[in-house]
Amino acid sequence: MRAKNNNGMGWLFASPYLLYGLIFFLIPLGWSFYLSITDWNLIAPVFHHVGIDNFIKALKSPGVHAAFFVTFKFMIVFVPMVIASSLIVALVVHGLPRFKGLFLIGFFLPYLASGVVSSFIVKGFLSYNSPVNTFLRGQLGLDINWLGTPLSALLLVAVIIAWKFTGYYALILTSGFESINQEIYEAAAIDGVNGWQRFWRITLPLLYPALFTTLILSIGVTFGIFTEVYQLTGGGPNFGTNTWQMEIYKQAFQNLSAGYASAVALIASVVTFISIFIIRKFLEMWGKRNGWT
């Protein structure tokens, strides 16, 4: 009797998720599969079934090739960058006897910035007549078109996003540092362990869980880059910053190829899912092999 009652209450309280999961997950998921085999253009009432044509077209398209590689380029640049910067912040801040909380809150502030705003600031800061570029031209004879080459544009977007996430990840790493028992360091000091050994043999292994979290989070970020790229480069120059989200947005809402965009989104999802799965496994293996987990 009581169990039956509870069943009802359980499903009642879970019903917001059931409703949401149906309308904003299951139905769109099925719809997406269906759209991907049509040539629908988002507006016209008429469309045709085209089988796997969209997928063939996508696999041959330079935009999709670019998205595939750009994501990994962002990963190679952004992940070490943000891990290094947040590690530096955490290393500097975690042992401070006073104002530690205040510093951490200060470092967290960039997380509040809209990508539109940070893109705009960077664009202004690096505009042709900005103090930085005037200095580079006048003193060093360097005339850099920051958003004009694929590499510098990619680096710039990576820096903007690293700026945003540094304080957040530093917060995670700081709490990782704090979970390390100080007595271990004292014992190691008695045994004559030097600074470098101390970092590799003690700090890193004990920090590994927090480091793992920030690595997974930052890798996840690279698969969802949109705002900064949309704002600064539109995916250019020469597809140099064309992320999956950018490609899908362009195809669906600028070219109005809803069918084709769905096929690209499907490919993007599969690539994202498999990549994150493999990277995760690799990181876990790396941690296990070193005996860190």
């Binding site: 879970a14 999961g21 997950f25 769109p28 997406s32 698969f223 969802g224 989104a265 993007a268 899912f273």
Partner: peptide, 27 residues
């Protein structure tokens, strides 16, 4: 709350959390 299907819902939510949401944009 104890109810039949709770584990299923837990797993469904975890699965959906790690599902790439970009595929849902157009639909």
């Amino acid at each position: 709350l104890q109810f039949r299907g709770r584990n299923f819902l837990n797993n469904a939510i975890l699965f959906q959390m790690f599902f790439p949401a970009i595929i849902l944009l157009v639909p």
